[in-house]
Design a binder for these strands. Structure first.
Lengths: 209, 209
DNA sequence: TTTGACGTAGAACATATGTTCCTTCTATAA
DNA sequence: TTATAGAAGGAACATATGTTCTACGTCAAA
């Protein structure tokens, strides 16, 4: 029973997408109508409600431009705290200086659940190449001091005084940590558990070319 | 001369960011005022104009919620056309079936200039590991049949019947193509120019973990 | 002190924009 | 055919929302 979209509804969705991309905010009912070739505002509203019922968007009553696509195309501004270099610890998102962010990068919403403790770093140098991360990449991080097996974490190697991004595995009854590169062409590193400090979890990588 | 932001303006920017994340569209002047502790709409408007002059956002006259942050947090919905597997040619974004997209992924605006001919593919398998791309990654592509030196392209190797993502270099007076992995630990491939077909240019990679 | 730029308030105003209501048209079931 | 529901069109309406104008306080230059 009509869970598919009418041609008109497909068109409306497309119009909204295009509009948001162009202007950065959703269109009004009249703008949708104009772009979709619908003269009556009530008809647009009618179809918008139908689209909401079918789960393609959300409306906010009595609110101008008060709609949002389910596809959720909004990207979250994440503070870009600086560069990550192999020889230095990772800067922590301190409450002290939230203004310290160099800039912000847009991160696709799907990549995030809650936005607290999330920050980004631009990678300098190719020291992370064995974890498939190159010079210039942006890594999206969640700040945390512990990790579960299988997490890709930023680990501070106490002896080497180096940060590295690797897959975390606690072994030998918690005595030893295996840091597994995400690139199968490279070998894991084994370190005594007390010689590793977790600085955060890697939740995403964004590379522009 | 006052290119810095006043405390109030910082606050307004923050309010807008939070609001957009929460609702998917920008706040009204009154909503900004309420959240920032400003009683007068004209003051909000005044500071919005100041922020526009300083380049932090754009306003659209007489338009409700007609503002957009320069940081450009909108992500663009890009059609996710399918999987890329080493043994098969890359699906082309055909006008025939624009509905063929499996899904859409949000791509940070900065990654894109114009949105035509852009599509995304999910990588299956680790055959692209030498270009720092792993199983599960999403590659953002621009469809094109030619490439310039230094572009990272999706290349179809005629003899091997394989697609690979590599840096493109035309050498030997156009006779030979060098396909350079983006990972310095791997060696380049040399192919006769007529044995390579460009299928598109890689403009970005998104990895969620 | 006076002047003027800047930031702030509050109220009035104009209009941008969602909603409601009444009709009309079509298609399908009774 | 008649009845009923879905979809569409148009106009009137209510209000959400940006703009304008006047006034006030502060601060630095003249």
């Amino acid at each position: 029973m009509a869970n598919e979209l009418s041609e008109r509804q497909e068109r409306i969705l497309e119009v909204i997408r295009d509009y948001v991309v162009e202007y950065g905010y959703p269109p009004t009912i009249r703008e949708i109508g104009e772009a979709a070739g619908i003269s009556s505002t009530s008809v647009v509203s009618y179809n918008l409600n139908a689209l909401e019922k079918k789960g393609h968007l959300t409306r906010n009553k009595d609110t101008s431009r008060g709609l949002r696509l389910r596809e959720e195309m909004i990207a979250i501004p994440v503070p870009l705290l600086g560069n990550i270099v192999a020889g230095e610890p990772i800067p922590i998102p301190g409450n002290e200086a939230p203004e310290a962010a160099l800039d912000h990068v847009a991160v696709p919403t799907e990549m995030l659940t809650n936005t607290d403790d999330i920050y980004a770093l631009r990678v300098r140098g190719n020291s992370m190449i064995d974890s498939l991360i190159a010079d210039g990449d942006v890594v999206v991080m969640r700040h945390q001091r512990s990790a579960e097996n299988g997490d890709t974490v930023a680990a501070w190697l106490v002896d080497e005084e180096t940060v590295t991004l690797k897959e975390f595995h606690l072994e030998a009854g918690g005595q030893r940590v295996r840091l597994q590169p995400r690139n199968p062409a490279f070998d894991p590193i084994y370190v005594r558990a007390d010689k590793v400090e977790i600085q955060g979890k890697v939740i995403g990588v964004i590379r522009e070319m």
